[in-house]
Each structure stands twice: as C-alpha cells, then as structure tokens.
C-alpha cells in the first residue's frame, strides 16, 4: 500500500539521484585533480613519521609572523575591495545597457591582461619619479615624493587592482537577483532611500558580499608575484616562503606542511566569513 505522499517522495528521491548522477563527472574530476593531490600533499608533510615539519611551520616565530602578516594583508585587501566594489556593483545593477557595457569593459579589460604586466605598470606609475608622484609634485600638492611603492601600500594597491573584479561580480549578480519591487514597496511605505537600501537591498545582497569576500580573501592569501615586486622585499607572504621551499631548497615535506597550515587557516577564515554574513542577514 502506498500513499500519494510516498510516491511523491519516491519521485523526489529519483530526481535527486538523477541530479547526483549528473554531478558525478564533475565530482570525479575534482576528486582526481584536486582532492587526491591535496591528500598526497598532506601525506608528504608527515613523510618522516613525525610532526616536526608542522612544529616548525606553526611554532617558529618566522613562519608564524609571516602567516599572521599574510592574513592581515589579505583582510586589508578584502576590506578595500569591498568598499570600492560595492558602489560599482550597485551602479552597474541600475545602469542602462550602455552603462553596463562600459562598466564591464572597464572591469574586464585589466582582467584579461597578465598580472605581471599590470604589476610592472604599477612600478612605472607609483615610483619615486613615477607618473603619480610627478603629477602631485607638479600640482604643488607635495614636496617630497610619497612612498607609494616598495612597501605595504604598494602591495595593497597592486593586489586590490588585480582582485577587484572578483568582488564586483558576485555582488553585482546578487543585486540583480533582488526584486526591484521590494525597494519600491519600502519607499512606498515611506522609507527614505537610504533606509530602504540599508534595511532591504543591502541585507539581500549579503550572499554576494560573502562570496566576493571569500573569493578575494582566499586568492589574496595565495598571492605571490605582486607582493614580491611591489613590496620591495619588505612584505613577505606565506606563498613566497612555500615557493622558496619548493623551488630553491626542494624541501617538499616542509613546503607541504606550510601549505597545509595555509589551507587550514584559509578554510577557517572562509567559514568565519560565511558565519558573519549569515549572522548579519538574520539580524
């Protein structure tokens, strides 16, 4: 004896199975080219049967300091990206056809240029005798050149430039999904534009903000060439130390331990970002 509810459930389950089968190729691919190497990496870090590599990666002052510094820089890049990207995404979501075309073009053009080329362009622009400093000096705004390059500010400028599209697009997508009637209704009920934005539009765009923040943060943590060039040697990111171990010293087990620590830190912060934005949405 089967009730109508049962058969509905069976259909639902069948549909679920079918959908799962559709995802199998992608899952297999991810498993082979991502999960398996990550496991191998983990295994390599404890190859010698001890946790010595992890001890060094997590307790040694040098590596701790660099990890902390990398997280700090990634968080700063994420925050700046968010502040810059949100208004852009907001404008794009309300712009006409030509506005969107222009905005997309301006966002995507640098996106298609090699990171190395863009980084060198910043060297030319931000140097002591670079375009920016010369312009500010000619305008009489400064006397001595501003130290824009070869320090943390140079790294931040370069990284924000590279990562901005990763923040704009998720926010733009989530803004597009919001029913425009909602803010119209809020305004119809007497809410001023700023309140309708704060209470209706912004909370509904949080999934995009969360995705953008997570993307930018995770990508920042792995950044390598931009901080190496624009930091003038004074900014060290974990990825640089990993690269040193892999390429120069061939100490792959230690590199694996460092990578694992970075991976765990990334996942932890990723979870934290998700929790914060979810919390904000329910508040």
């Amino acid at each position: 004896m089967s009730s109508p509810g049962d058969s509905r459930r069976t259909i639902a389950r069948r549909r679920e199975t079918a959908l799962f089968l559709l995802a199998v190729p992608a899952l297999l691919l991810l498993g082979i080219i991502f999960a398996w190497p990550v496991l191998r990496l983990l295994a390599m870090s404890v190859e010698d049967g001890t946790l010595a590599n992890f001890e060094k990666a997590t307790l040694d002052e040098l590596y701790l300091y660099v990890l902390f510094d990398s997280v700090k820089i990634a968080a700063m890049v994420m925050a700046i990206c968010l502040v810059v990207a949100y208004p852009v995404a907001f404008w794009l979501s309300r712009a006409g056809r030509w506005g969107v075309a222009l905005g997309m073009f301006a966002l995507l053009l640098p996106f298609w240029t090699s990171v190395l080329v863009r980084t060198y362009a910043w060297l030319v622009l931000l140097g002591r005798n670079g375009v920016v400093n010369r312009w500010l000096r000619d305008a009489g705004l400064i006397e001595a050149p501003l130290p824009l390059l070869h320090n943390t500010s140079g790294v931040l400028i370069g990284m924000v430039h590279v990562l901005l599209p990763y923040m704009v697009f998720p926010i733009y997508a989530s803004l597009l999904r919001i029913d425009p009637d909602l803010s119209r209704a809020a305004e119809g009920l007497g809410a001023p534009a700023w309140r309708s934005f704060l209470r209706v539009t912004f909370p509904l765009s949080l999934p995009g903000v969360s995705a953008g923040c997570a993307l930018v943060f995770v990508l920042s943590l792995g950044f390598f060439i931009t901080p190496a060039l624009l930091g003038g040697g004074r900014v060290i990111m974990v990825s640089m130390l990993i690269e040193q171990q892999v390429r120069e010293f061939l100490d792959w087990p230690f590199a694996a331990a460092l990578s694992t620590v970075l991976l765990v830190a990334t996942l932890a912060i990723y979870a934290l970002i998700g929790r914060i934005t979810r919390g904000a949405r329910h508040a």
Binding site: Y120, L123, V124, G127, R128, N129, G130, L149, H150, A228, L229, G232, G233, R234
Partner: peptide
C-alpha cells in the same frame, strides 16, 4: 637600500627611472 629586488628586470628598470 630603497628596494630589495626580486626579478632581474627590476634593478635595470629602477636605474632608468632613477628610483
């Protein structure tokens, strides 16, 4: 030391730019 360089192109570029 104003800059600790990383790639071979940097010192040449910085001399040209008078960095």
């Amino acid at each position: 030391i104003a800059v600790w360089w990383t790639t071979g192109a940097q010192p040449a570029q910085m001399l040209v730019d008078r960095e």
